[in-house]
């Protein structure tokens, strides 16, 4: 059901930004968790906080239920489950999801009929009636719609964003950076790309590539974000944003691109330390 805080149901529905209830709220939080031993199966952890005692009690007594729904518009994957638990986890297979995963939490009437009462109704409801008789399936409370952005690149190294792109107008030893909505391209001539691809097959080669190509490239991308030269639907932007969220960082006009790029690449200098520098 679409979230519309202004929609009138003819009875109070607990929602954010709605005045149907006074001094009462519903809030939800969603988190994506890795699971042990599987690269595809993750868990979505949800927490629902409800500020109306009668609703919480009715969930416990099974007159009301929580319906948690997942929906991915790109893959048409949908799943929903009915529960009495205000906190819980649900396993999801990431191979079913691409892009945004919409997560909706609703409290609905589970019994054949239910009399909705609360001393927190907005006075305009209390004036006409102290209780409302609802039928099975009717909406009682609705959490703010949540969204998780899920692309394989988010779970892989940030380096998976990059693609080698041939451009034979470029001389040996020269490379350029380019972006499209779904990738970041490293342009170089065909011979140079062969050398770079070969380098990525060894530990030392990878350490050199991280420091000579990917590190400055990510500094450049962060700079683009800082100057507004991006679209917020760009995959590379969303991946950088999600990766930095996990370290508690955001890109802002005052960010230090070198510091953030080092976080995103897990301190690239340490890759050189472990291969070339420490050996000397």
């Amino acid at each position: 059901m679409r979230f519309d805080p202004k929609k009138s149901f003819g009875y109070p529905v607990l929602r954010k930004n709605s005045s149907d209830y006074v001094n009462a709220d519903i809030s939800t939080s969603i988190e994506l968790l890795e699971t042990d031993g599987s690269t595809h199966i993750y868990e979505i952890e949800y927490h629902v906080m409800i500020g109306v005692r009668e609703i919480k009690d009715a969930i416990l007594s099974r007159d009301l239920s929580l319906v948690v729904s997942f929906f991915c518009p790109k893959t048409l994957y949908s799943e929903s489950f009915v529960t009495q638990e205000l906190n819980g986890r649900r396993a999801v297979d990431m191979r079913n999801i691409k892009g945004d995963l919409h997560i909706n939490v609703e409290v609905i009437v589970n019994s054949e009929s239910y009399s909705l009462v609360s001393d927190k109704f907005h006075p305009e409801f209390s004036d006409s009636s102290k209780s409302f008789l609802l039928r099975r399936g009717d909406l009682v409370a609705q959490g703010w719609p949540e969204k998780l952005f899920i692309e394989r690149e988010v779970f892989q190294s940030v380096i998976s964003l990059f693609q080698w792109a041939p451009n034979d107008d470029l001389h040996d030893g020269v490379w350029k950076l380019g972006t499209t909505s779904d990738s970041v391209q490293i342009f170089a001539n065909t011979k140079q790309i062969s050398l770079l691809t070969a380098a990525s097959n060894s530990k030392v080669g990878r350490a050199v590539l991280i420091n000579s190509i990917f590190f400055p490239a990510i500094i450049q991308l962060i700079g683009q974000v800082m100057s507004g030269d991006f679209d917020d639907g760009d995959l590379w932007f969303k991946v950088l944003e999600m990766k930095l969220q996990s370290t508690g960082d955001v890109i802002s006009p005052k960010s230090d691109p070198i510091e953030l790029a080092q976080k995103l690449l897990k301190n690239p200098l340490s890759a050189l330390n472990q291969t070339l520098l420490m050996d000397e």
Partner: peptide, 10 residues
């Protein structure tokens, strides 16, 4: 119908 009733329950 889906505007007022949670059809996933049915």
């Amino acid at each position: 119908l889906g505007g007022t009733v949670n059809l996933n329950l049915l």
